[in-house]
Design a protein around this nucleic acid. Structure first.
Length: 873
RNA sequence: GCCGGAGUGGCGGAAUCGGCAGACGCACAGGUUUCAAAAACCUGCGCCGCAAGGCGUGCGGGUUCAAGUCCCGCCUCCGGCACCA
């Protein structure tokens, strides 16, 4: 008998519905013009950051964001929206190629295998993707358009070749963009990187810096993410100022500063060691020291330069400059020119005016090398001791402070005393402009986007090098496909392995003359910078995306992914969208309206007394403690990221095998707020599984002889009013919680309903259970669809509209209010909802009579429907 | 160093607008059922205390009838940036 129990069996129902949905294309999104397209429906575009199909397969971190967008997608469909919810593969790039190299298999082969794994893993989780729109960035039908878009960039003067120093990573055998290098090490693999000059394709993203900054304001992104982009763009308003080099007629050093007002305190100049003027201005006596310093600076990797940044270093060039504010014969205007590696050649003009009285770095440098520190401020804070030290230049004062009386030109054209910071800057800048010694200037930290790699597995450029220079491959000849290469490994030289594909490289230009193909390939971020556009119109053979399709679907209404793409991918995608907008190819200026960053799923790990992490396999549980399996030492539980090293990686396949996809989805959403990082606790998983079992038992009898449904659910009957009320509240709560992406509390509300319904199971009506299935559907679609079918719901649950809420059922006739005396809870009172204050107060007085005895009530506070507070004496 | 975010029971977390702190889940304890176990179900579960009661949202102050929530000053953890002139 027991073996025939009709218990909740996800292994039976999940594949059944997955196949049904897939075969019937239930989640196919219709474009304008498609048969059955309904223009009256609002559109909703819910997008996941598509994955790199790595060999490791899906990680539990992937389904976190994917489940969130799936819930929203299913809910939006139930609310009557035409929903675009696609999935694809970021298949080109370093991770795929590194894996291919490790396994000595061609990346085309490993990528195809990895994609197949990812697809089947995702399909086992019941996501409502429109699989007809699946795409891969490594598919020639896709990258044909990546190449085409690159040609648009080139046509608009936004792609150029450069020989400037770039980040070279020896271990990866390629160059990397700024955002791929962190503290001088590669973001992927943590390998050391260094700067080297190399011919590269570069995209002029800096031309869009101002718009990329300004358009952030209108986006529904977290402030912290916007701040990260703003800081990366790094806008800085200031001035450029020319200093004549003494003894070198006609030679000027141009510096950038945000504090032109401190020019009176500039007591030396500093050029970066790579500054082009260094060689020509260095005095013969200093040449040896300067060249030595330049060599040392060059041999230091960027990593060492930042790590060893604690102590300032530099040498004098032997040259002097003249501070333009002072008369030509005024000795105060004669200032030395130094070189130092704390000045960066790529920022501003690569040269600064040092004002030690107002800048900590300059102060440190001046102190170390005994350079003058002229005081330029006269603060009067009341701390006479400190004010005096600032005035004498003994203490650095980087903030706003009153100017000293001597901050004035001899002719009185500038007199800073009494002026504010803004007025001071203005006064000096106006003077500089009038005397043609400088101008207002805005600079950005953002640098142009290094857009080529010396690797095999990427999009080839549609570029030929001819005897006349660069020639672009005609649109009709796109895509330029990769040649098949047995040996695709980087050669250890800063050159693409494509150089070895001699038959491919050697070609003819449009005039039939010999030409060579470009051997650099595009970076991983190329294909991912526009995939959200292709999803709108994925099979278009005549355009990257029809204007009608992108006009309809864009912008993406909800984009969910990790913070790791805060500057790279999100900035690049915004840039390409703006360029395509300028070219008239898309209407929107911004691709992603709402962006949501999910937190990281972490795991427990165990540390011994020394703080060393003990792999999971070497631990065991003894009672409430976790101890070292061999030494028996008691271990401390910590929360950290999942890692092979700690042996704490959770594989979603295992969770699906044991509990089913619905449990995995539900657990990931129940763990906590989507935006938070939180640890995976295997002991918590059965909790949500039990909730699904209880939901199942509400409908299905334990033993088959009682039928596939409880008897009281086989026909319609009046709804129990108490459960009806509870259900409406639950619908209302779940609705609001999905809206604000608070999935954990939505699930908890459904749990409360099921607990209540379980207490009076036979009171539950078929209609109520059907509506509960509708609520559950976005979260646990398989069990919900199965219950819907068993209950005889009309059509497919995934096509059913969201159940309505009767606002009348959300209010109670009677409410229990808290009664406080002096702010402490002393009793409770039951009063009619909306009762007048005197009725509430009367009931409240009774509830806390013993606390009021012998006291004088001096104040009565009533919060309707919630609480009464008596203030007594 | 600078800029964000966070700190609530044994654990994950809830409290959406200043109004009953600890919803929901886990773990734990007791019980029902069972030959037994699992499962399921019921009850309890912040801390101290026999109780009355007191204490309690990182720490110290403040505002308020009322503070996890607001203000001031600290501490710790996480993320980002880091000599950007």
């Amino acid at each position: 008998m027991t073996e025939q129990k009709q218990t909740y069996d996800p292994a039976a129902i999940e594949p059944k519905w997955q196949q049904f949905w897939l075969q019937h294309k239930v989640f196919k999104a219709k474009n304008p013009g498609d048969p059955g397209f309904d223009p009256a429906q609002p559109k909703y575009y819910a997008l996941d950051m598509f994955p790199y199909p790595s060999a490791a397969g899906l990680h539990v971190g992937h389904p976190e964001g994917y489940t969130a967008t799936d819930i929203v997608s299913r809910w939006k469909r139930a609310k009557g929206c035409n929903v675009l919810h696609p999935m694809g593969w970021d298949a080109f790039g370093l991770p795929a190629e590194q894996y291919a190299i490790q396994t000595n298999t061609h990346p085309a082969k490993t990528t195809a295998a990895n994609v197949a794994t990812f697809r089947s893993q995702l399909q086992r989780l019941g996501f409502s993707y429109d699989w007809d729109r699946e795409l891969s960035t490594a598919d020639p039908k896709y990258f044909r358009w990546t190449q085409w878009i690159w040609k648009q960039l080139h046509a608009r003067g936004l792609a150029y070749e450069s020989n400037a120093p770039v980040w070279w990573c020896e271990a990866l055998g390629t160059v990397l963009a700024n955002d791929e290098v962190i503290n001088g090490k590669s973001e992927r693999g943590d390998h050391p990187c260094e700067r080297r000059p190399l011919r590269q394709w570069v995209l002029k993203i800096t031309e869009y810096a101002e718009r990329l900054l300004g358009d952030l304001d209108g986006l529904d992104w977290s402030e912290s993410l916007k701040t990260m982009q703003r800081e990366w763009i790094g806008k800085s308003e200031g001035a450029e100022i020319d200093f004549d080099v003494l003894g070198h007629a006609g030679t000027k050093v141009r510096v950038f500063t945000t504090r032109a007002d401190t020019l009176f305190g500039a007591s030396f100049l500093v050029l970066s060691p790579e500054h082009p003027l260094v060689a020509s201005i260095t005095a013969p006596a200093q040449r040896g020291a300067v060249v030595d310093y330049q060599k040392t600076a060059a041999s230091k990797s960027e990593l060492e330069r930042t790590e060893l940044a604690k102590e300032k270093s530099g040498v004098w060039t032997g040259a002097h400059a003249h501070n333009p504010l002072f008369a030509a014969d005024d000795p105060k205007g004669r200032i030395p020119i130094w070189i130092a590696d704390y000045v960066i050649v790529t920022y501003g003009t690569g040269a600064i005016m040092a004002v030690p009285a107002g800048d900590e770095r300059d102060f440190e440098f001046a102190t170390k090398f005994g350079l003058p520190i002229p005081g330029i401020f006269a603060p009067q804070t009341g701390d006479a001791e400190r004010d005096g030290r600032i005035a004498r230049g003994e203490v650095c004062c980087p903030d706003e402070a009153p100017y000293a009386a001597h901050c004035r030109t001899a002719d009185g054209a500038i007199a800073l005393a009494g002026k504010s910071l803004a007025q001071g800057k203005r006064a000096v800048l106006d003077w500089l402009v009038a005397h043609r010694r400088g101008e207002a200037k805005v600079t950005y930290k953002l640098r142009d986007w290094l857009f080529s790699r010396q690797r095999y597995w990427g999009e080839p450029f549609p570029v030929l090098h001819t005897q006349d220079g660069v020639e672009l491959v005609a649109d009709a000849q796109l895509p330029v496909e990769l040649p098949y290469m047995e040996d695709f490994k980087p050669g250890g030289v800063p050159e693409s392995p494509l150089i070895r594909a001699k038959d491919w490289v050697a070609t003819k230009d449009s005039k039939g003359r010999p030409a060579q193909r470009e051997i650099n390939t595009m970076p991983g971020a190329a294909g991912s910078s526009w995939y959200f556009l292709r999803f709108c119109d994925p099979h278009n053979a005549n355009a990257f995306c029809s204007k009608a399709a992108s006009d309809y679907w864009l912008p993406v209404d909800l984009y969910v992914g990790g913070t790791e793409h805060a500057v790279g991918h999100l900035l690049y995608s915004r840039f390409w969208t703006k360029v395509l907008h300028d070219a008239g190819s898309v209407t929107v200026k911004e691709p992603f309206h709402k962006l949501y960053n999910q937190g990281m799923i972490q795991a427990f790990a165990y540390q011994d007394a020394r703080g060393a992490t003990v792999p999971k396999a070497d631990t065991k549980e003894v009672g409430d403690d976790v101890v070292h399996a061999t030494t028996g030492e008691k271990l401390k539980q910590i929360v950290t990221k999942m890692s092979k090293r700690y042996g704490n990686v959770v594989n979603p396949d295992d969770v699906v095998a044991e509990y089913g996809a619905d449990t995995l989805r539900l657990y990931e959403m129940y763990m906590g707020p989507l935006a938070d990082s939180k640890p995976w606790n295997p002991k918590d998983v059965p909790g949500v599984h039990r909730f699904l079992q209880r939901s199942w038992r509400l409908a299905v009898p334990e033993f088959p002889e009682h039928g596939t449904l409880h008897a009281h659910l086989r026909s319609d009957r009046p709804d129990d009013p108490e459960l009806e009320k509870a259900l409406h509240r639950t619908i209302h709560k779940v609705d609001g919680d999905i809206e604000r992406m608070a999935f954990n509390t939505a699930i908890s509300a459904m749990m409360i309903f099921v607990n209540e319904a379980t207490k009076g199971m036979e009171r539950l009506s078929r209609s109520q259970l059907l509506r509960f299935a509708q609520l559950l559907q976005p979260f646990a679609p398989h069990i919900a669809e199965e219950l819907w079918e068993r209950l005889g719901g009309q059509g497919l649950l995934t096509r059913a509209p969201w159940p309505p809420v009767d606002p009348k059922l959300l209010v109670d006739d009677e409410v229990e209010i808290a009664v406080q005396v002096l702010g402490k809870l002393r009793g409770r009172a039951l009063v009619p909802n909306g009762a007048p204050n005197d009725v509430v107060l009367a009931a409240a007085r009774v509830a806390v009579a013993s606390y009021l005895e012998g006291k004088t009530v001096i104040k009565e506070i009533v919060v309707p429907g919630k609480l009464v507070n008596f203030v007594v004496k």
